[in-house]
Design a protein around this nucleic acid. Structure first.
Length: 383
DNA sequence: AATGCGGGGTA
DNA sequence: TACCCAGCATT
């Protein structure tokens, strides 16, 4: 046992685990994935819950289980279907990794989710937290599952002033937890830690008066429950002005618009979008029609560089902002006309679609926002 | 160890 | 606004 863990007395660790498990069994929320021990369903729920709130996940989880009720069903599904069901949930590589890993379980483990730490941790998209969560909740194995909630709870209860943004801090907490996890109630204990963090030991204004372990909470006894955990600040997102093109079809493409699919890797991988480019750095901020025209021409020129036929802008349609964790997009949509449509060759990623066809494709939130605005819809009206 | 990767809820 | 959410992969 590591020396630093000895500073936490054994009796206090037993108190902590016992009270938490007892509290969880009496007060846990009734969540869809708590009504099963199916490792596949636990797995799906844990992937969806990564960096995502319970309330957000619930409807996605229900739809997903309806469409893919078994590991085999997910393994056999088209990748596009999985991405479409994930639409709006974010971090889309989770969906692709999940299906890749499920297919691996189907082929290498006969469709049975492995119960060995090294096997399950080797699956795509399954890191230290998710491996511990599946092993403890579905299989009852005494493995730690340290997420943001757990680090906050442990920081406060054991008065740990480590920076939780550092990977080393998570490892420290995993070592501590291995001395705390009750062997016969590992799943309930891990879920109790997270449940406490989500409902009582909240980031701000924790509800200490109803906390089951308040009496011996070192953070509260030190008056530091509001300032823990310590965490270095994240950098603000960088600003990007982006120019998008709304291009309407004519003739055989009448009633369709031109969209494209994003690359296989990176931001919003494999999702569909309006063609757009990063605004040239020397382009003046959009104020009034004159600058809008300059932006429109810059957009058309950039898209022609990418292999589209001759384009000309005819005005700005709408604009919207979207903030990712690391980028702030200011998106402006310009109506553009394409000189040649019939028989024109397009780059592979581009495609003409009707509004109905668009409904079937996975679209990021920002493009849903743009396409549903009134100005955009009025441009699409047949006339 | 640092960065890329969505979208939304909350005080 | 600022923070942060049942994190992981890549470099």
């Amino acid at each position: 046992m590591k020396k630093q863990d000895d500073t936490v007395e054994q009796s206090k660790r037993e108190y902590f685990a016992g009270r938490l498990v007892e509290w969880f069994r009496a007060h846990q929320r009734d969540l869809p994935w708590r009504r099963t021990k199916d490792p596949y369903k636990i797995w799906v729920s844990e992937i969806m819950l990564q960096q995502t709130r319970v309330e957000t996940v619930i409807p996605y989880y229900e739809r997903f289980m309806e469409r893919f009720p078994t590991l085999e069903a997910l393994a056999e599904a088209p990748e596009e279907d999985v991405l479409k069901l994930w639409e709006g949930l974010g971090y889309y590589s989770r969906a692709r990794n999940l299906q890749a890993a499920v297919r691996e379980v189907q082929s290498d483990y006969g469709g049975v989710v492995p119960d060995e730490p090294k096997d399950i941790a080797a699956l795509k998209g399954v890191g230290p937290y998710t491996a511990g969560a599946i092993l403890s909740i579905a299989y009852g194995k005494p493995e730690p599952a340290v997420d943001g909630n757990v680090m906050r709870v442990l920081s406060r209860f054991f008065l740990l002033r480590d920076d939780i943004a550092k990977p080393a801090t998570r490892k420290h907490m995993e070592r501590l937890l291995r001395t705390v996890i009750p062997q016969e109630a590992a799943g309930d204990f891990n879920q109790a830690l997270m449940e406490l963090g989500a409902t009582i030991c909240t980031p701000r204004s924790p509800h200490c008066l109803v906390c089951p372990v308040m009496e011996h909470c070192a953070g509260r006894l030190a008056g530091e429950e509001e300032t823990l955990p310590l965490k270095t600040k994240a950098k603000p997102p960088r600003d990007e002005r982006r120019l998008a093109a709304l291009i309407r079809g004519r003739g055989e493409q009448a009633g369709r618009i031109l969209i494209r699919r994003r690359p296989d890797t990176g931001l919003l991988a494999q999702m569909w979008e309006l063609p757009h480019v990063l605004a040239p750095a020397d382009l003046q901020p959009a104020v009034g029609d004159a600058n809008a025209s300059a932006a429109g021409w810059a957009l058309c020129a950039a898209l022609e560089e990418e292999g589209l036929p001759e384009l000309a802008p005819s005005g700005i349609v709408t604009q919207a902002d979207h903030i990712f964790s690391h980028i702030h997009w200011h998106m402006e949509v310009y109506l553009c006309s394409m000189a040649v449509i019939e028989g024109a060759a397009l780059p592979d990623s581009y495609r003409w679609v009707t509004p109905d066809e668009l409904e079937q494709l996975a679209l990021p939130k920002i493009f849903h926002k743009l396409l549903s605005c009134q100005a955009f819809r009025s441009v699409l009206e047949p006339n």
